[in-house]
Design a protein around this nucleic acid. Sequence first.
DNA 1: TCTGGGGTCCTAGGACCC
DNA 2: TCTGGGGTCCTAGGACCC
Length: 442
Amino acid sequence: MRAEATILHVDLDAFFAAVEQRDKPSLRGKPVVVGGVGGRGVVATASYEARAFGVHSAMPTAEARRRCPNAAFLTGRFHAYREASTAVMKLLRSISPLVEPLSLDEAFVDLAAAGLPDLSVTAVSSFGAELKERVHEVTGGLTGSVGIGTSKLIAKIASDLDKPNGLVVVAPGTEQELLRPMQVTVIPGIGPATAERLRRIGVHTVEELEAISEAELVRVLGQSHGKGLFRLARADDDRVVVPERETKSVSVESTYETDHVDKRLLDALLDRQAAQVTERLRNARMSGRTVTIKVRLHDFSTHNRSATLPAPTDEARTVARLARRLIGDIDTSGGVRLLGVGVSGLADWIQDDLFTDEEEVPDPDEQDAAADAALVANASRRRDWWPGADVEHDAHGRGWVWGSGRGVVTVRFETAETGPGRVLSFSSDDPALRPFSPRDEE
DNA sequence: TCTGGGGTCCTAGGACCC
DNA sequence: TCTGGGGTCCTAGGACCC
């Protein structure tokens, strides 16, 4: 926590809906709901007019229609939202080099790095008011709520206190009296599950949270969350404003109007998602080693399966092959509601720099071999995993897998060329192969 | 017609290495 | 016959955020 209120949080009001109302005057003053409009859609943003009918984010759209049948239901125009967001972020960066976007419509700004002559409460208040006007200008009429305080926690909570179009500055030294009477759920990071655990130990307000020992919080919530909340309950927060975060994963997912059972269709959908995800990877000049599929079944249970390649890829084929194999581990016979493909373990990978020569572009077959190798590494841990696999064990109980997939045997082998222990895949009738014995490794 | 899509972080257990 | 400890990587699931 700082001595002066130098962390600012901006939050654009009902952002998606507000952009729609800005661009379509007929929607102004009327309930607008942006989100999924299909049978399984949920609300992303409701305008304040729609909120008056009890419509809110994350509510199923079907329920929103029941509550507010006269609202305009829109799917969303993300280009327009991104454009407005970019204008705001640019404005913020002109104020301070330390701007941390949290999403399209939210950011922290470190005013201590802004070079303001005066950081008194009065001065930062008028600064905040001016910022709101400039947000209104650069976005063509959108409003934002601003909170300013001595920490991220306080700035974020403050911006929420007077929505929409609010401005709240929390004077240094008054943080705890602000927090104490509030419900614990105002603290970012306390969601329904944590709130319920706290409720069970009799904690509802921040004041009650403050009375719990650190050891007890760690017992109830785990090491990281427990220690973190022990401090936040005391308004003890020294988290810095981080301007650049590196992307850790890229994913695509889709919920279908009806549950899918046909395995060929599921494979085709995975192929398409693999193509989408790798296109985004290539656009971002990245590649990744770990491929994860996400499957939500008819009963809403969600299952992830992942496998890690020996080297990063941005190839649709490689990701698709792995994804298809991974879904084989999941019983989809009851129907699939959602399918997703993601890539993590990302590496910067600038194709043009690395592969100036056309010959040096990775051979797709080698990539496939790498995918097979990753599957073998996985299968050796999970004997049941590889369909049709033949597993043998050495004296140490370690398993070695003979996997037969589409005319290719993938196994831990040695060859005269590769030496012992290399994980590779070969065609099954290659006479140069003999099973690799783990002893050879010693 | 209950329950989106894109992320981040944490936990826990097993494998493996030294 | 009994049996370490720390560190890292990988996988699965869950909580949370907007």
